[in-house]
Design a protein around this nucleic acid. Structure first.
Length: 595
RNA sequence: GCCGACGUAGCUCAAUGGUAGAGCAGCGGUCUUGUAAACCGCCGGCUAAGGGUUCAAAUCCCUUCGUCGGCUCCA
């Protein structure tokens, strides 16, 4: 992701990118240079090279970079005309394209669009390397600490982010003011890897994805299924409290439905091939909306019954391109926490606000407090590209922005990013690796009500078209659970733990006592396991600690004699002996408070 | 889908083109222990699948599937 605009390390990182570019250019004659910005925690540079890079190449590039750094070459800024730029970069097609676009006011040096085109370009030169660049840079290459940078990996990246254009080789690197900071960063990367949901999913026996049954298809093991069950139960209860009704719909539907909805026309490449039976074609559903609309259409609707809020944990299947699958975060079969709201125009404002409040309530309940929100609206220059009337769009966009503002939620207004059928709020959560994943989406739809010709009878006795809002708050169970695992690094709050209490008898002699305790703990409504394995107490503690069980009750001769339990928390804290009743009170309180 | 790397036991990893191995996990025993790993033994593999090259392939080549890192796209 891009570096924050005010990051003081940008000059250092951008300068290191230039040094890397020089090194690559020297080691690979004929290199064509793309762009190379500073990003969060580092930098990259894109190259068109005669052959693929290997890890050995990265070492050679790093070695040459250290030499350039030792040269203490100053970074020299120059202002040049576009003509001069074309001369300097006459053998650099990508740079020439950038100059063209800069002149036309289409892009800046980082390939991002800007509104006005500068007539003066700037270049920065150090040693033998000159790049088209806005700066700023450090004063000279010697200011780059030679022991605090590292080239991390090479990856493919399309020129200008366009998959129809050539694919370049991108080298990612990181650089810090001092060696200790680089080391701290590398340690951070390792910690992040340890909380990767794919690793924790295996270690905690929560889920698996078995290529033998298909990529992107998730198997929920008992412990993962327990967490999912708890999330879903909570979700259902809260929806009922917040004025939703629950519905269910099938996994397949006749081609009629998908033709009517337009999915076969616009979404076919993401749909699984049809199943044929009785000379009819059925498709696995990639979305739930056509079914909910069909429920709406099942009889005449009155203005009196609106708004209708119908929610379903609807499992959908989408054929996602192979390269994008990622653990639980990007899969081919997933269960959306979907709902559709049908309402009158005069209800829209309140419905959007309700939706937002409910959304905040849910995320907070699961311990998430930081979001990135986009409000995607029309491209004002091309109102003709969109379904639905001008007035409806304005009303919908206003309802969305007012709701965000009423709740003081910072958001980015993304003009032109709305889909053709309506404006939307996209709400993203960051994973442990800093990647953001869209979970919540609140979307207006002016298209489907039209296509299915749904209506309600108004006060005036005439037919009116209802507004329709799609919303998924957690997004999907798969993605949400993936993020939940990383958010808590597998140490879930007690109410979500598949195993809340582990009983650890010190010797076999305490097993009968442990069984009594087990029964009492289970009767208190807690999920408990008794470890009567043939191992030492220390090994059992280690095992359940690694399984992130919040409470371990150690049961030895002393506890049995006094009828107590020795309580140890997964933090390692030893609370000592206490009566079982006191422990149960403590655990139940934690469950209630959802901590 | 694209670029690159990779695919050996449940997991983490070994093995010059020449007999596939270790630790952990699992199983069986012994031990009966006071807050993060007792000891001994056993089991475990068509080296992802298919095709080639070779006297000989985990190793070299091709295809498919999958995984990882990105890009593009998305809940």
């Amino acid at each position: 992701m891009p570096a924050p605009k005010d990051d003081p390390l940008i000059p250092l990182r951008h300068s290191t990118a230039h040094v890397m570019a020089q090194a690559v250019g020297e080691l690979f004659p004929g290199t064509k240079f793309g762009i190379g910005p500073a990003i969060e925690d580092g930098f990259y540079y894109d190259f068109d090279l005669p052959r693929p890079l290997t890890p050995d190449d990265l070492e050679a590039i790093e070695a040459r970079m250290r030499e350039i750094i030792r040269g203490n070459y100053p970074f020299i800024r120059r202002e040049i005309s576009p003509e001069e730029g074309r001369r300097i970069f006459h053998d650099q097609p990508y740079k020439l394209e950038l100059i063209e676009d800069l002149q036309a006011g289409r892009a800046d040096e980082d390939g991002e669009s800007i509104s006005t085109g500068p007539l003066t370009l700037t270049t920065y030169t150090h040693d033998t390397f000159t790049d088209l660049c806005r700066g700023p840079h450090v004063e000279h290459t010697g200011q780059i600490p030679a022991d605090a940078f590292k080239l991390l990996r090479v990856a493919g990246a399309y020129w200008r982010g366009d998959e129809r254009r050539p694919q370049l080789q991108r080298i990612y690197g990181t650089v810090w003011p001092a060696r200790q900071e680089l080391e701290a960063y590398l340690v951070r990367l390792e910690e992040i890897e340890r909380r990767d949901h794919r690793r924790l999913g295996r270690e905690l026996d929560l889920f698996s994805v078995d290529p033998n049954l298909g990529a992107g298809l998730v198997l929920w093991h008992p412990k993962g299924a327990m967490i999912r069950y708890l999330v879903e139960e909570f979700w259902r209860q809260e929806h009922l409290k917040w004025g939703y009704e629950l519905v269910f719909s099938p996994h397949i539907g006749r081609s009629w439905l998908w033709e009517k909805s337009g999915h076969l026309q616009f979404y076919r490449e993401n749909m699984y091939a049809p199943l044929e039976i009785d000379e009819q074609e059925f498709y696995l559903k990639p979305m739930n909306c056509p079914f909910h609309i069909s429920i709406y259409r099942s009889r005449v609707r009155s203005y009196r019954e609106l708004p209708l809020r119908w929610a379903e944990l609807g499992t959908v299947y989408r054929y996602e391109r192979g390269g994008v699958l990622h653990g639980l975060l990007r899969v081919r079969g997933f269960t959306q926490d979907d709902a559709h709201i049908f309402c009158r125009p005069d209800q829209i404002e309140e419905e959007v606000l309700r939706c937002l409040d409910f959304c905040l309530h849910l995320w907070r309940a699961f311990g998430f407090h930081e979001y990135e929100i986009d409000l995607s609206v029309r491209d004002p220059a091309h109102p003709e590209k969109y379904a639905g009337g001008d007035e409806a769009w304005q009303q919908a966009e206003q309802a969305l922005s007012r709701a965000l503002e009423a709740r003081h939620l910072p958001y980015r207004r993304a003009e032109g990013e709305a889909v053709f059928y309506g404006p939307k709020i996209d709400w993203k959560i960051r994973d442990a690796l800093g990647r953001t994943w869209q979970c919540t989406t609140i979307q207006f739809d002016f298209n489907l009500p039209e296509r299915f010709d749904i209506s309600y009878i108004g006060e005036d006795g005439r037919e009116h078209r209802p507004y329709m809002v799609h919303r998924a708050l957690l997004g999907s169970m798969e993605r949400f659970l993936g993020l939940l695992i990383e958010h808590y690094a597998g140490a879930f709050p007690v109410w979500l733990c598949p195993v809340q209490v582990a009983l650890i008898p010190i010797t076999d002699a305490q097993v009968p006592y442990a069984r009594q305790i087990e029964e009492a703990v289970r009767a208190a409504g807690l999920r408990v396991v008794l470890d009567d394995s043939n191992r030492r107490m220390q090994a059992k503690i280690r095992e359940h600690q690694l399984q992130k069980v919040p409470y371990m009750l150690v049961l030895g001769a002393r506890e049995e004699a006094t009828g107590q339990v020795a309580v140890r928390l997964r933090t390692g804290e030893d609370l000592g002996d206490m009566p079982l009743s006191r422990f149960l009170e403590m655990a139940r309180e934690a469950v209630e408070k959802k901590v």
